[in-house]
Simulated assay, not measured.
Amino acid sequence: IEARLSKFANEVLFNADTTVWQASYDGRNKEPITLPVKFPLLLAQGAEGIAVGLATKILPHNFIELLDASIAVLQGVRPNLLPDFYTGGLADCAAYNEGQRGGKVRVRARISERDKKTLVITEIPFSTTSGGLIDSIINANEKGKIKIKKIEDNTTWDPEIIIHLAPGISPDVTIDALYAFTDCEVSISPNTCVIQDDKPRFMSVNDMLTESTHTTKDLLKQELEIKLKELMEKIFFSSLLKIFIQEGMYKHPDYESSSTFELVVEVLNRLFEPFFSQFYREILPEDYKRLIDKPMSSITRFDFKKTDEQIKNLNEEIKQVKHHLKHLTEYTIAWFEKLKDKYGKDRGRKTELRTFDRVEAAQVALANVKLYVNR
């Protein structure tokens, strides 16, 4: 399966330098074992699946709340995540139990009263569909649990289910009855189970977020260390090339008369010996190979002033990277803040959190049984 990554995915999901690779099935290419994700993606999207003796049901959570909670973790505060569903609706998460087994979330459709004879459903419970919801309402009507005149489905991109009430029926009582007898209210039982170190592990969503946050911090550290090494290598080779040209080593008689690469390395080692202390690492034969592969045109047109300016800028970048490494927690917090500023627009909470009163079915069921007196 191939897919084009979005800008967000490119930023948080993939980095070729920190990805652990393995050979593909035919050995011709490489493929990632896992992706170095710098965001709690599993908690954002949710997941559901079953296996032999195992099952998992991770509910989705809000993008901004996940970033804020990750920042809180880095500040030493334990998070308190609650689910947020893309379908909106209302949710009672009092018994969420941090997403662990035994927890429960009650989710309701958003039902409003258009007038005394009409109800409108504009948001449906997570895990339901508008078609399934309508079927459950029709079924409850046929069983006499509710009394409606007709129902219309005007759903397009957003749900819009219009319920026309029968004459003399109270809208408030009907709303309670819809929650009691139809899929306008559903109960979801989370069961957070993940694979960690090749083993299944049951854990809370708050612990998952904590581990994800520390993983992000470690990945950012790896990226900074890689960047630091790259910057130092750039300075290393720029300085090497500058000395090579400045000291006229490329036209030294011993260098020009060297007939083999081994002799070239020997001569250059001798010529560079007074400058060894200026380099952060040992000069390897591969470095000399890069030098001698430089075309003569680039050597004769070498700009010393421009190179000095580049080295100065590289040193400034190195200083900044070392500062980030020294203050890694603050750097990681800034990373999460940047993600929120860059991608957090229009990603506010969609599901309204409430505490539901228990709807007693006996109190909202319609009196649909006729009693007769035998006189």
Rank of each mutant, 00 (worst) to 15 (best):
L5H: 00
K7F: 14
A16D: 15
T18D: 04
T18I: 11
W21T: 00
R28T: 14
R28S: 11
N29T: 07
N29W: 06
K30H: 11
F39Q: 05
L43V: 09
E48F: 01
I50G: 06
L66G: 01
L66F: 09
L74K: 03
L74R: 02
L74E: 02
Q75R: 13
V77D: 13
A94H: 15
G99Y: 00
R106D: 11
V107E: 08
I111F: 01
D115A: 04
K116S: 14
T118G: 04
E123M: 06
F126N: 02
S127R: 13
T129Q: 04
N141K: 07
K143P: 06
I146F: 06
T155D: 02
T155L: 05
W157A: 15
D158N: 15
H164N: 04
H164W: 04
P171L: 03
A180G: 09
T182G: 07
V186S: 13
T192K: 00
I195W: 06
D198E: 13
F202W: 08
L209T: 00
S212G: 07
D218K: 15
L219K: 08
K221S: 07
E223S: 13
M232D: 08
S238K: 01
S239R: 05
L241S: 12
L241H: 09
F244T: 08
G248F: 04
T260D: 09
F261I: 08
V264F: 00
R270T: 14
E273H: 12
Y280P: 05
R281D: 13
I283M: 10
L284K: 15
L284Y: 09
P285M: 09
K289C: 14
D293C: 10
K294M: 15
S297R: 08
D303H: 01
K319V: 02
Q320I: 11
H323W: 12
H323M: 10
H324V: 04
E337S: 08
K342G: 08
D346H: 11
D346I: 02
K350L: 15
R354D: 00
T355S: 14
D357I: 02
A365K: 09
A367S: 06
A367Q: 15
Y372Q: 08
R375Q: 12
